[in-house]
Design a protein around this nucleic acid. Sequence first.
DNA 1: TGCCGTCACGATATAGTATCACGCGACGCG
DNA 2: CGCGTCGCGTGATACTATATCGTGACGGCA
Lengths: 153, 153
Amino acid sequence: MTATISREQQLIEAEAACLRRGAKLTPLRRQVLELILAADSPVGAYALLDRLKADRPGAAPPTVYRALDFLLENGLIHKVERLNAFIGCVETGHGHAHDHPHQFLICRRCGATVEIADSAVADAIAAAAARVGFTAVEATVEIEGVCARCGTA
Amino acid sequence: MTATISREQQLIEAEAACLRRGAKLTPLRRQVLELILAADSPVGAYALLDRLKADRPGAAPPTVYRALDFLLENGLIHKVERLNAFIGCVETGHGHAHDHPHQFLICRRCGATVEIADSAVADAIAAAAARVGFTAVEATVEIEGVCARCGTA
DNA sequence: TGCCGTCACGATATAGTATCACGCGACGCG
DNA sequence: CGCGTCGCGTGATACTATATCGTGACGGCA
């Protein structure tokens, strides 16, 4: 696992991003982000809540949803609509916009979900919308299928 | 409103499509489809349930969800994930595949949601997935923004 | 004709996801 | 100090979806 080290890195990036935006990554928010990053698949709000309760017995749904809202607003996580679940989005090395175009690849076999940022897809979407007079602001693109590892196995 | 006439047409198309597939569009299923087509925006399952209860006092969540499952399986409706709501998909004039690629345009102002079938978007998605060794089976594409009418108003 | 499997649906209960409303304490600022 | 904002605790509630069991209708088939 390269995970542990890079995850620390991601949290540091997240703090930096919040600083730049004038937002406060409180201990609670940071902890929720940490739980999301620690999972290797998208995590549901109530799964997060359960894990949160280990440390914070008083945690309730609003506790986790407020943290999630903050993380979403600040571009630190995304929601995967098809799964009603959340996934981390901190990209070390290059700052990213608040609302960058992105797409998800969701493997039906192993559940792994990865984010890509394909500009051809984004362009095609903007063009298709424009063609009918629609001004696209934001797009949810969630692609289901079989990932490389599961496909060859 | 051109709606009423064309809606009848849509229901007839739907019955024909079911016949071709060997599926049975029972009165209940037909009624749920009718309710969905009658709405001019995507409709939630419980909104459908409420309307259904006018005719069928005994209707319960499974009643409507079973009908929705049937309609989804037979390609007569789609689910809009971002709204947890359902929208009709019968396209009069040209039969359509069960699982055809499609995209939604969701207006933030008026809530109107329209389906498009842009092959450039579909191709870009398949290509982007293939580029990372992912075999795309099905994609959810939901574009939020401002529709032509709301944009000029 | 009688048996039997499948299917559509009723009915009850429960699981899973998300928000509302109220209050309080900490902090920053004039 | 007075005051506003913000983060969060707390309890209740709304909204979305599924599990489970039963029953009656219908079709196939000996």
